[in-house]
């Protein structure tokens, strides 16, 4: 296959045609920069914290956010990479090593926060105890703790935005998962700029890779020669998400544009979901930790309590 723009050998076939290495890199970067601009994800006065793990998505978003700041003469001195060490054996240590090296090379300070230090347990230790009574999957615990720590530490840093590496596949999966489980309320928090209401305790999360597929993102890291070792979370196959992911990939293979179609449809109804979500009640402060919560006790502290009783 030849590039539709220059006739060189193509590296990917997209819906609108095939692209060579150089044209793909320009296409990908332009798409990310346009997303940042369209949704006003980054402004001159923002202090930015990038949620990182050392995987392909977070390294890409870290690199491109930094490039965007440079391109637009926005000061990058306040940029901080924030990583959560969940405490998953034979997994996170590898990606964190890649991340440390990457941050050093690109001159971005890195802060690593661990579940063990914050909650007294690694995910490996917490999961069997919490699962015994609640039947919670590791991804449920991991997701709650990760969001809690990212928000808390980004706020401590004085961040006004948390940039995450969520891509088109992640978002399409989340939309479908919420539909399958009738979680309309959760869907209102999705979108390129997350959150429903502005709140002092919440740092707004933005997703510059929102319109980039997982395949495009991996290709970008390969062509840019970022050091990304293949690692898959040992718990990934246990999750509901893995089933939805496989289903969507099957659909995408048979019917090109499925994932983009899901996102376009979702974006068309998102304003209505956000409007409806305004009625869901005020955000409270957790009585245990004083972090934001929907109920009297936040979900992170509920898991902590389950560990104490288990």
């Amino acid at each position: 296959m030849r590039c539709l723009k220059c006739q060189n050998s193509a590296v990917i076939t997209l819906q609108h045609g095939a692209l060579c290495r150089n044209h793909f890199l320009s296409y990908f970067e332009e798409k990310v920069f346009k997303t940042i601009q369209k949704y006003q994800m980054i402004s001159r006065d923002d202090r930015i914290c990038i949620a990182t793990s050392g995987g392909k998505d977070s390294l890409t978003v870290l690199y491109l956010t930094r490039k965007y700041l440079e391109k637009n003469n926005i000061p990058k001195e306040t940029l901080l990479a924030l990583a959560i060490d969940e405490g998953i054996d034979n997994y996170r240590q590898t990606t964190l090593e890649d991340l440390k090296k990457f941050c050093q090379e690109h001159d971005v300070p890195l802060q690593i926060v661990s579940n063990k230090e914050e909650f007294g347990h690694t995910l490996d230790e917490a999961y069997p105890i919490v699962n015994k009574d609640s039947n919670k999957k590791p991804c449920n615990i991991c997701g709650v703790w990760r969001r809690y720590l990212l928000n808390k530490h980004a706020r401590k840093h004085g961040a006004t935005k948390v940039v995450t590496g969520h891509n088109l596949d992640d978002e399409a999966q989340a939309v479908i998962m919420n539909i399958f489980k009738a979680n309309t309320k959760l869907s209102a928090n999705l979108g390129p700029v997350s959150g429903v209401k502005e709140h002092d305790l919440f740092v707004q999360r933005v997703k510059p890779l929102y319109f980039c597929s997982e395949k495009e993102t991996r290709l970008y890291t390969v062509l840019m020669e970022f050091q990304v070792d293949f690692t898959e979370c040992p718990y990934a196959s246990e999750g509901f998400r893995a089933h939805v992911r496989d289903m969507l990939n099957d659909f995408e293979h048979k019917y090109k544009g499925t994932k983009q179609g899901i996102i376009n449809s979702f974006l068309a109804i998102l304003p209505l979901l956000k409007e409806q979500a305004q009625e869901y009640g005020e955000i409270k402060r957790c009585v245990k930790c004083e972090e934001p919560a929907n109920n009297e006790i936040c979900n992170a502290c509920k898991i902590k309590e389950a560990l104490q009783h288990g």
Binding site: S53, G55, A236
Partner: peptide
């Protein structure tokens, strides 16, 4: 053959 899917 490189895997596109990673993470959790």
């Amino acid at each position: 053959i490189l895997s596109v899917i990673s993470g959790g």
